[in-house]
Design a protein around this nucleic acid. Structure first.
Ligand SMILES: [Mn+2]
Ligand SMILES: [Mn+2]
Ligand SMILES: [Mn+2]
Ligand SMILES: [Mn+2]
Lengths: 226, 226
DNA sequence: ATATAAAATTAGATCGGTCTAATTTATTAT
DNA sequence: ATAATAAATTAGACCGATCTAATTTTATAT
């Protein structure tokens, strides 16, 4: 007997679905057992088991020893969870005053709360935000996720500038680093120089003295060229 | 491998602890297996199993075939969950605009979100409320739950009046009934007459015409005599 | 005090989600 | 094409939370 008669998708399944969705987005259509095991922090046989259960529920399509991918139904659930996750993150930052590096783990739980009216009202309460505190786009109530036009700062030539719109590295340490450097979403970042020797970037930020950052940093910042 | 390394108390244990706490509050010190099974909506052997697990964690003290009761540790967890539940209910009503009859089931899930900073910030954001939307007192951050001075309206003599401070029946149907009758928390309710024959109450509410309600209703309203 | 009824526990099973060890299947290199 | 390596699956187990059926313990009634 379950208190939250979730019935449909379990907590765990939702986390798998989200992970598969993100892997499909970045690493192409089909996903490998070992890859998923790694990002889920479980061992391969656990994934195989879970795949069978989820295939039974028509959340993924799965051919033994070939890869697997989300069905339309699975994709819908995944996007819905992502929507919830990002809305809660906005709530935590905008309303409760958390820092952007603190909200991910809390949202990782909140995203599973079972109630559509809750999500809708939260969305309205937050003013229908388009992006979460890390710049990631928030799918709308119909599951439509606006395609981002952002590119990595590292893809821009020296001399070009871009508006900082998001991060591709969501780690606490990177977010803290950006805070320390005074680099915030919305800032305009100009590439003054790219050092040929070690690929360090010299960046110019409005009203600040130039900053030298590693290639890794330039490769973790999403911008819209301007 | 668990994503929310809850470790300490599981979702399910927390629901059991809360139920035991409430049973101890109303039905005296020790609780019976069958009673708990009934309120948890499970069968008796499930309770026996759970009791063993919880006794192992020192959340309850348990003597086989005698009753059981919460330890100090168990009581602390229970009160903390109650605090979270009631704070979330305030959030849902005050901030998101839910009705008081809609929030219980959602809070039943939200109460388990693992994060003390979250609860503290929520508390602050809500302005440190003293009671939830049903008039139930909210334990403070130290787990201190103010003792209520409310009594059942049915305990008052005809002619007396009281301020409506809470309900002892939390069912959706009763809450809807009160809405329909225009009876809201904070209202002053005067007992005009108690019919000897069938114990119906004639109530006077400020600015409204007298209402006749059953004994069951008078027995579900908490008031502070005035 | 003994029989009967009620409450609680034990025994044995299932299910979701995980593990390790063993095996099978697919990929890669020579 | 065959052998070696890597990836995936199967087999068998565990844990938490539940169930039903059988048994034991406690309470109640005569
Ligand atoms: Mn999650
Ligand atoms: Mn985010
Ligand atoms: Mn609950
Ligand atoms: Mn309440």
């Amino acid at each position: 007997m379950y208190y939250l008669s979730r019935m449909s998708t379990s907590y765990t399944e939702e986390n798998y679905l989200k992970a598969i969705y993100k892997l499909q987005e970045s690493n192409g259509e089909t996903v490998a057992t070992s890859t998923l095991a790694q990002v889920m922090g479980v061992h391969a046989p656990s994934v195989t088991d879970m795949l069978k259960r989820m295939a039974g529920k028509k959340l993924i399509s799965y051919q033994k020893s070939k890869g697997f991918k989300l069905t339309e139904k699975g994709k819908q659930v995944a996007v819905d969870i992502i929507r919830r996750h990002r809305l809660w993150e906005v709530f935590l930052v905008d309303k409760l005053g958390f820092r952007w590096d603190e909200v991910h783990t809390i949202a990782e739980e909140l995203e599973h709360i079972q109630s559509s009216p809750l999500v809708d009202k939260l969305d309205a309460y937050l003013g229908y935000p388009k992006a979460d505190p890390h710049g990631d786009p928030i799918p709308d109530a119909n599951g439509v996720l606006p395609k981002s036009r952002s590119v990595l700062l590292s893809s821009l030539k020296a001399g070009k500038a871009g508006k900082f719109t998001g991060v591709s590295d969501h780690s606490v340490s990177f977010l803290n680093y950006l805070d320390k450097m005074g680099i915030s979403l919305g800032d305009t970042i100009k590439i003054k120089h790219v050092e040929d020797f070690d690929k360090t970037y010299t960046l110019e930020l409005k009203g600040k003295k130039p900053a030298v950052v590693s290639h890794k940093v330039a490769n973790s910042l999403l911008v819209i060229e301007q």
